[in-house]
Structure formats: structure tokens, C-alpha cells
Computed example of a mutant assay.
Amino acid sequence: MRIRVLLACVLLGAVAAQPAQAEQRGFGPEKVRFSTFNASLNRSAAGQLVADLSTPDNAQARKVAEVIQLDRPDVLLINEFDYVPDNQAAELFRANYLRRGQNGAEPIDYPYAYTAPVNTGVPSGLDFNRDGRADGPDDAYGFGLFPGQYGMLVLSKFPIDRSGVRTFQNFRWKDMPGALLPDDPATPAKADWYSPQALDVFRLSSKSHWDVPLRIKGQTVHFLVSHPTPPAFDGAEDRNGTRNHDEIRLWADYITGKAGYLYDDKGKRGGLPRGAKFVIAGDNNSDPIDGDSVPGAIQQLLDSRRLIDTKPSSRGAVEAAETQGGANLKHGTNPRYDTGDFNDNAPGNLRVDYVLPSYGLIPLHSEVFWPVASSPLARLNDTSDHHLVGLTLLVLGR
């Protein structure tokens, strides 16, 4: 990492010596900040987020905007931002919150935005949780009270190549070779929690998986975003834990040439070509050691030879683990890397939010936005049960 940073400094020095015209033509490297933030901007009823964002006075949205304005990412994924067609909620959030300075923070503008339908709250018509009824949030293709709850939003200062966007909302779990399908422990059969009828329609992605190509410095950088289901709220069959594992695996296969089986929502097959540059971001709901995820779930990404794990950290997370105690005192993951502030008894604070760049991009520094209690910014720690994770990297121009 030290060699990579020294190289970045040399390259930045070279940029400073280049004429401005060269930068305008797209030559030379550029510092770009990618961030992910599960902002908990989800609501319990359809239309409520639009109502809340229609004025500039919603206290939670103001806090979310202030965190973003302080971090100042160039490219941002927001998890748990309810999907509303035609970018309506996104437009309101940009106009009423991000473009207005919050508590002295400088306004920030994102000319490009991408959002799309997700599986949460979309009725399946089948009894996925086997409670004898084929209705309710647990029988939707992804857990949700209404279609679009817990959606995703990508904001960018760089153009989005919309013709190249790939979504995997409808990919069926059973079509993944070697899928870790959940097993009913009460029967001798294997991987039989879901009936054949259910598996014929069951979608792997609990929200969706998006490949959003960005045009940065004359080249394409793929922003790979998702929000796998929490590996909890189930029983001995571990249907959410196994799904979480395979949702993470989808991106692991997508970037390593093992995705010949994958088809996107337009029918295109396969994954990223060799040499493509990308950043994987999102709330993966999986800690490397602690919590309830299937062992090795997030390691499918962290151990990939195509990815760099910069291990973003904060002093606030260390302080929180010490003062909150409980399960945090028995954790194996260093608390400095925690991103989620969860129930102190179980599971405790965890590292679940990630921004992982590919080789070919040069990481400079990364952080978790988790101020210590003595900081004036500690008032923002209750904005969400997750903390923003940011990574600044160097994109080499063509």
C-alpha cells in the first residue's frame, strides 16, 4: 500500500505540472471519492418518503445530507432509499437537501442519478416463509412492506452510461451453479426448504444488483452496487444467511470470469471482461468474523485477487465498542473497522459496509464516518444504524 501511495503522489505531482488543457482533454490522473451509506431513508408506507422530502425540513434527511456534504463523495451509493419511479424521490433529495447547506456544510450537487426497481415488497404469491399464508412482507421477492421499500440510489458527478447499465433483479437463485439453497433440517432431503414451485420463481437478489458504468477520465469504471439481505430473522434453515452468501457470491463470480451462468434483466449473459476497472460498494450485511453470516461469505470478495481491501476505519467505532460493551467485547474483528452500530447484546457492532476497488485503480485513503463522542459531529452518529464508508482513489486518465 505504501508503494501505491508513493506512486499516487508522483502522479499527482505530474498532473500539477500539466497544462489545464490536457486535463480538459481527459489526460492525467484524477482523485475520485467513492462512498456508500445505508442512510435508513426507508419509510413504512409507499409515498411517505416523497412526502418527507417535499420540504427541506425533515430532520433525518437533513442529517443524512450533512454527512454526505461533509464527506463530499464524487460517486455515492445510498442504501435504504425507497424506490420511487422517475427519480422523484432522488430529485427531491437533491433539490431540498443536498443543494442546501446543512449546519454550515457546503452544498453538493450530483448532476447524474440512477435508480431502478428492486425486489423488496414485490408480492410473489407464494408462501416463502412457510407460515401457511402467501402474503405479507416475508413472502415478497425481498422483504418489504411495499414495492420499492429499502431501495437503492446512485448519485454521481460523472456521466452514467445508461445504455451499459446491467441489472440482475430477476436472476433466479436456483440458476446459480452450486447455489447454497436452504435446507429444512426436519427432513432427510437436501436443500428442500423451498418447494420446486417456489424455486422456479425465487429471485436471488433481495433488492437488486446493479452494474452502473461511469465515464471517468475518458474510460469506464463500473460501479457494482447491491444490498444483500441480513443473515438473520429466519430459523434453523438459515434461508436468509444462505441467500446473503450467494448474493455476495454473485459479484465475486461477476468479476472473476466465473459468471457464464449469469443473465441480466435484458438477457445478456456473463460478467465483467478481463481488465475492466470497477468499485464494489454496498451494505453487504456480512462481517469477516462476527455476526450471523455464513462463514466465508464476505471473504468471497475480500480474498479476491481482483480487489483491494483498504480496511476503512474510525476512532469512533473503537470508542463505541468499548463504551457499549456486550457482544462487542467478544468480537474477533478489530472494532476500528466496524461500520454498523447494532444491538449491544447481539450481534454487536459489525463491519458490514464496503467500498472495494479493483486493481488498476489506486487507493489513496479511506475512512468510516464515525466521530468520537467528544466531537461536535457526534450528533450525527444517530443518523442511521450504519456509518458512511468513503474511499478516495486515483483514476488514471487515457
Score class of each variant (00 low, 15 high):
residue 99 R to M: 15
residue 44 S to E: 06
residue 242 T to K: 15
residue 271 G to P: 04
residue 94 R to Q: 14
residue 288 P to S: 02
residue 27 F to C: 12
residue 246 D to W: 07
residue 260 G to D: 15
residue 39 A to L: 00
residue 104 G to N: 08
residue 250 L to E: 09
residue 61 A to R: 06
residue 214 L to G: 02
residue 27 F to N: 10
residue 24 Q to P: 05
residue 385 D to N: 11
residue 20 A to E: 12
residue 342 F to T: 03
residue 249 R to S: 10
residue 329 L to P: 07
residue 55 T to M: 07
residue 151 G to F: 03
residue 72 R to I: 11
residue 219 Q to K: 14
residue 369 F to S: 05
residue 41 L to H: 00
residue 21 Q to A: 14
residue 74 D to M: 11
residue 14 A to K: 13
residue 79 N to Q: 13
residue 292 D to L: 07
residue 382 D to V: 08
residue 5 V to P: 02
residue 241 G to V: 06
residue 48 Q to H: 05
residue 278 F to C: 10
residue 57 D to P: 07
residue 58 N to M: 08
residue 89 A to K: 04
residue 102 Q to S: 04
residue 29 P to C: 06
residue 92 L to Q: 03
residue 105 A to K: 05
residue 235 G to Y: 02
residue 317 A to C: 12
residue 106 E to H: 07
residue 179 A to I: 14
residue 339 T to E: 09
residue 309 D to W: 01
residue 104 G to R: 11
residue 108 I to Y: 03
residue 320 A to F: 09
residue 267 G to Y: 08
residue 315 R to Y: 10
residue 92 L to V: 11
residue 54 S to W: 02
residue 332 G to T: 06
residue 162 R to C: 10
residue 217 K to R: 15
residue 317 A to N: 09
residue 234 D to K: 03
residue 228 P to G: 04
residue 202 F to W: 11
residue 397 G to Q: 06
residue 52 D to C: 01
residue 393 L to S: 03
residue 64 V to R: 00
residue 380 L to I: 05
residue 14 A to C: 15
residue 59 A to T: 13
residue 367 E to S: 11
residue 353 D to P: 06
residue 193 W to M: 07
residue 212 V to H: 04
residue 240 N to I: 08
residue 351 R to C: 13
residue 15 V to K: 15
residue 307 L to C: 07
residue 171 F to C: 12
residue 169 Q to M: 14
residue 112 Y to E: 07
residue 324 Q to D: 11
residue 9 C to M: 15
residue 279 V to D: 00
residue 76 L to I: 14
residue 370 W to M: 02
residue 49 L to Y: 00
residue 115 T to I: 04
residue 206 S to M: 08
residue 113 A to D: 01
residue 28 G to R: 03
residue 369 F to A: 05
residue 361 L to G: 05
residue 253 D to H: 14
